[in-house]
Amino acid sequence: MTHLSEEQLILYYYGELASDELIESHFADCPSCREDYRQLQRTLDSVDYLTVPELPADYEARVWRSVQAGLDKPARRRWLFSWNPPSYVAAGVTMVLLIVAGFLLGRFWPVSAPEVPQLSRNEVRERVLVAAVIDHLDRSQRALLELLNSQANGQTDISSEQAMVRGILEDNRVIRRNAAAGGQAALADVLDDLERSLLDIVHSSSNLSSAELAELRSRLESQSILFKLRVISSQLKRRQDDAARELARRSS
């Protein structure tokens, strides 16, 4: 018997199929697909737990006030352009206004503008890179935790975890090479260790027995990779906070 695909079950759940008959008659004969659907239903129903904050009774009026404040500028502009003289008169008046404005600006504009803290290109690049590395480390930790915490019941299918890890592995190679090229040896070392752990996961069989899963976990734990990731991640976060404080200090 050909089982129903996950896609068919999803479309059935959302009532997107032209006819539900095929699915329902299949369910009648196939406990496995019924169970798959029950699991899918459970996941999708659980998403409804994500609630939206209650809004105050006068929310609409508040929104209008804030929108109206934003409409002020175009409204004034409309008033200005509602004056509709012949175009050559308007062009002449505009020219005179521009000349006068230019003269006044040149006369009264401060010679040196007040200093506004600016980030240099290198600082901006550094900030973006740090944020990207922190995100990568967080994703890696989540993926490893997922594997370390997965329940071993007989055969465990880790193909979805492996798919996630493959994506992380590609990013890891790029970030590790950049870190090494940028002289960040400590970070490059940790990423090197992480790469080995990720490769270990990717190269494992997708279906692991309880013993094999325990062995994989034990290898990952023995490398203390999670601990190393946490340490380097917290160091980077501290660096990020210091940079933010420095910028605030420069602006005050």
Partner: peptide, 24 residues
């Protein structure tokens, strides 16, 4: 559009499996 939804749901099922039970 369909595939974006399918991929999204597949990822959600994977992440939620430890809390809700068996994964697909």
């Amino acid at each position: 559009t369909k595939h974006s939804i399918f991929r999204g749901i597949r990822k959600m099922r994977r992440v939620l499996a430890p809390v809700l039970g068996r994964t697909p």
